[in-house]
Design a protein around this nucleic acid. Structure first.
Lengths: 130, 130
DNA sequence: CGGAATCCATAACGATACTG
DNA sequence: CAGTATCGTTATGGATTCCG
């Protein structure tokens, strides 16, 4: 719950509502963008979102459902079958996430280059001042 | 480093570059939006961003500088004086953050209402089935 | 003032085992 | 299949102390 300061109360001139913890946790963005493509069963998501544990998937889906981003439906098959899909609010969230993805990809090179410059400068300062 | 799965390698149809850890950590968005308004000294930021520890401010600024979002300048005053400002890339990040803030605020009520519905349903299911 | 270094609490997460 | 429960590890961040 202390994930991002915006999520709590206040920050300088910028107040995130307490509604967007989902954007900042580890797996929810992945889950949402999978569901943006089509509804998934639990097991499908588990295979689809590489590396997620069943515990984290359960927890992400639970939180996303509680916040109104995801709809959980028990299908009337013989065995236990559950389908997850996005609500319309969840669809908006997915769009937002996609926008973020796009921006980060556009500027990935800039950031990587900045890191390399920074790290080189650090080395120079540490070493070259005898 | 494991903050968000997007930041590592892969997620279903959505690949965050490794460049945006800053968007997902606890304080950087607050710091960036403060700097979006005007350059700040270290101490100013410390007072401005309510609740941040000196350690976290140092660490956020360091990471933001390394990624090319923030510029750090030692001013030629008598004593130690450092000013932080956004680079142009940092300005873009600030805009993105502002967009996120706006969206979360618009839909804060929706999310809160969804939570209440969900929690009420839970209670009903737990209690009312004797 | 602007930090760095250290210590410690806890929140987040992963692995595993079990259930209807 | 779709979870729940438990346990151990690691990541994160707060408090404190010290330094040029």
């Amino acid at each position: 719950m202390t994930r991002n300061r915006f999520l709590e109360e206040y920050s300088a001139d910028c107040t995130f509502s307490p509604s967007l913890e989902r954007l900042f946790d580890k797996w929810s963005p992945c889950v949402v963008s999978s569901l943006a493509e089509r509804p998934h069963r639990f097991g499908e998501l588990h295979r689809r979102v590489q590396g997620i544990s069943q515990k984290m998937l359960t927890s992400s889906l639970h939180d996303l459902e509680r916040d109104g981003f995801v709809l959980r439906e028990v299908l009337p098959t013989g065995r236990v079958t559950v389908e997850y899909s996005l609500t319309s609010l969840g669809g908006q969230l997915a769009t937002l996430i996609a926008t973020l993805c796009a921006w980060t990809q556009e500027h990935a090179d800039d950031v990587i280059a900045a890191r390399e410059r920074f790290d080189r400068r650090q080395e120079d300062e540490d070493g070259g001042m005898g």
